[in-house]
Design a protein around this nucleic acid. Structure first.
Length: 563
RNA sequence: GCGCCCGUAGCUCAACUGGACAGAGCAUCGGCCUUCUAAGCCGGCGGUUGAAGGUUCGAGUCCUUCCGGGCGCGCCA
């Protein structure tokens, strides 16, 4: 149940009755506790247009609005705000219901994320796309959208010539394939220093593009190995990607000639220095000249523009997506603007919404692009190892009585969770500073704080020998802390919808932090197990735990019963 | 040169897309553990939101100019 939408509808009706038919009610959380739970600001703007005094209009709306059973109090405050306090019984019922509304209504959405380059192992800079995309996909799933994950891996291009040539030389069962970083470096060094090898590598590219079966087989072998490295990272990270979601650049090879023919037929291409380009006037570069979109190189080869066009057509056509979300590095902004503009001209978008949701870089403390310690490189697997090791050190210090198996699980949940949360909790489309020490201090708005809140509740159940699943019914709400906690739980739906609309998971992080904080305050001031209101408070605890767990899960973060 | 993004407390970040007195955490100072996990709670200190104009009943948010930082601008992706 989306409380905010519900209030909006009721106030909208009252505004209409007051003569402000198309005025939005503008409902949001109250900015200060003395203004209740929600506030509506729409009367101010509407009054201006109607030539009324804002307070008079607001009073009319308050009078006319049907908020019975929803708001315990509604009043005009300040220059013409409407302050709303939600009814305790209403909150109690909302809690007992606890279901998510399928607001997505089965609408099909493609989420394009992760897309590592298979020439190398996954790097730290693949982290953001992978975990932001994963969280977005999970939230959309939970809201009843029909989500199709697409991993547009970089599995094609001239770079694979030297890799396959190297593979040919050292044998496909070589141990060197266990370390793709080194394999890649070796191949690159040979390409630079060994003319004969470089020639063979170039021939491999020709063979690949020509579809030579033996070469393709070797290429596939390399891709399979590289993908298995990626899958290991995905499994370690706990993101929901698997081979079914992979549709890489190579999958569109057969479409590219047709794309070019079609674009030509539509009069969108012209030749320039031997390359086929689209010149769209809105893309002015230096000297006022148009920055071209090169769809075919002068040597006849294709570039990522062409592949991406084919992917757009596939996603909106074959997959019939209504929305395609690209969770990709901000540096690709121009590329996507051009891609979307050309796709629209060619009618490949099929009326779907094509959206680039950019993000910045991970920076180190020094403000430069993040590196793991000692300059040991930026391999994502190493990075995740470090996160788990650091988490284990802290958990061991705090709770040494956990057995080895549980310690493993907690270290993983806390380490990986902290890394993900540090990233997901930031709104910035720009860069953000990643700091091991700050993140691992486990204070404030961090995953461990949320996990700790959850663990405290589980501990409470255990101590009281409570079967949480057996707790049912509607809790009676009495204390202010109980009201605040129940209200926050009731806001889950509107928060998820906000994430779905904005494609910004940090709203969910802020929500969960506020929820955990509301619980901590409740927990400090409202004894549970020894209370005469034990059952009511246990119900609040149960719903808090369920919402924390569900919310963290949507961020791809695990919970633990003890930590 | 042109374009995009960013600039909020000493530091790291919010501010629900134009609403009330800009909020958290860290750091710092102080209070709370014989009672449900102190990885917690409560309080103090800390701001001319880079600068100057403009629009508006109302601007961190929108517009203009400037300053500072990042990124991108034809055959890599």
């Amino acid at each position: 149940m989306n409380l905010r939408t519900l209030l909006g509808e009721r106030l909208q009706a009252a505004l209409r009755d007051a003569g402000a038919a198309d005025a939005p009610p503008i409902v949001g959380p109250a900015t200060r506790p003395e203004f209740g739970d929600y506030q509506a600001n729409g009367a101010l703007a509407a009054a201006k247009r109607l030539g009324m005094k804002p307070r008079d209009l607001a009073a009319q709306v308050v009078e006319a609005a049907d908020l019975s059973g929803i708001a315990a109090r509604s009043e005009v405050t300040g220059p013409g705000f409407i302050s709303l306090t939600i009814d305790d019984d209403f909150l109690s019922e909302a809690l007992a219901d606890g279901r998510l509304e399928p607001a997505g209504n089965g609408e099909r959405v493609v989420v394009d994320y992760s897309h590592p380059n298979l020439a190398k192992e996954m790097q730290v800079h693949h982290l953001r796309s992978t975990i932001i995309g994963d969280a977005v996909a999970r939230v959309l799933d939970a809201l009843g959208y029909d989500v199709l994950r697409q991993n547009h891996v970089g599995d094609w291009g001239t770079g694979f010539g030297r890799l396959v040539a190297h593979l040919n030389d050292i044998g496909e069962d070589s141990e060197a394939l266990g370390d793709l970083e080194r394999f890649y470096t070796e191949a690159s060094e040979r390409f630079a220093n060994d003319a004969a090898f470089a020639d063979r590598a170039r021939q491999v590219v020709v063979d690949l593009q020509g579809g030579d079966p033996a070469t393709l087989e070797r290429w596939q072998r390399y891709i399979d190995i590289s993908m298995s490295h990626c899958q290991a990272v995905y499994d370690r990270l706990g993101v929901g990607l698997n081979p079914e979601h992979v549709r890489g650049e190579s999958a569109y090879n057969d479409d590219l000639d047709g794309i070019v023919e079609d674009l030509q037929a539509k009069g969108l291409l012209s030749e320039s220095d031997g390359a086929l380009c689209a010149f769209l006037p809105e893309f002015k570069g230096k000297d006022g000249k148009i920055v071209p979109i090169i769809v075919r190189k002068s040597d006849g080869g294709y570039l990522y523009h062409s592949t991406d066009l084919a992917a757009v057509r596939y996603r909106t056509g074959t997959l019939r997506a209504k929305r395609v979300l690209y969770v990709v590095d901000a540096r690709q902004s121009l590329h996507f603007k051009q891609l979307f503009a050309l796709a629209k001209r060619a009618a490949y978008d099929a009326g779907a919404s094509l959206e680039h949701h950019p993000f910045g870089m991970m920076l180190g403390n020094d403000g430069r692009p993040f590196k793991t310690r000692e300059g040991s490189g930026t391999r994502l697997l190493d990075f995740l190892d470090e996160a788990t090791v650091r988490a284990r050190r802290l958990v061991e210090a705090k709770n040494p009585e956990l057995d080895a198996k549980e310690m493993d699980r907690v270290a993983r949940a806390v380490g990986i969770g902290a890394v993900k949360y540090a990233d997901l909790s930031k709104n910035r489309t720009g860069d953000y500073v990643f700091d091991w020490d700050a993140m691992m201090s486990f204070e404030g708005n961090t995953a461990p704080y949320l996990q700790y809140a959850y663990a405290r509740i589980q501990s409470l159940f255990q101590r009281g020998q409570v079967d949480a699943a057996a707790l049912t019914g509607k809790p009676t709400i009495r204390a202010a802390e109980e009201h605040a906690l129940a209200l926050q739980i009731a806001r889950f739906q509107e928060t998820l919808e906000q994430v779905a609309t904005t494609v910004m998971p940090h709203h969910l992080c802020t929500y969960l932090y506020d929820l955990a904080a509301a619980f901590m305050r409740f927990y400090e001031r409202c004894p549970v197990l020894d209370s005469e209101f034990r059952d009511d408070r246990l119900l609040l605890c149960r719903h808090t735990a369920a919402t924390l767990s569900r919310g963290l899960n949507l961020l791809g973060i695990e919970t633990v019963d003890r930590m």
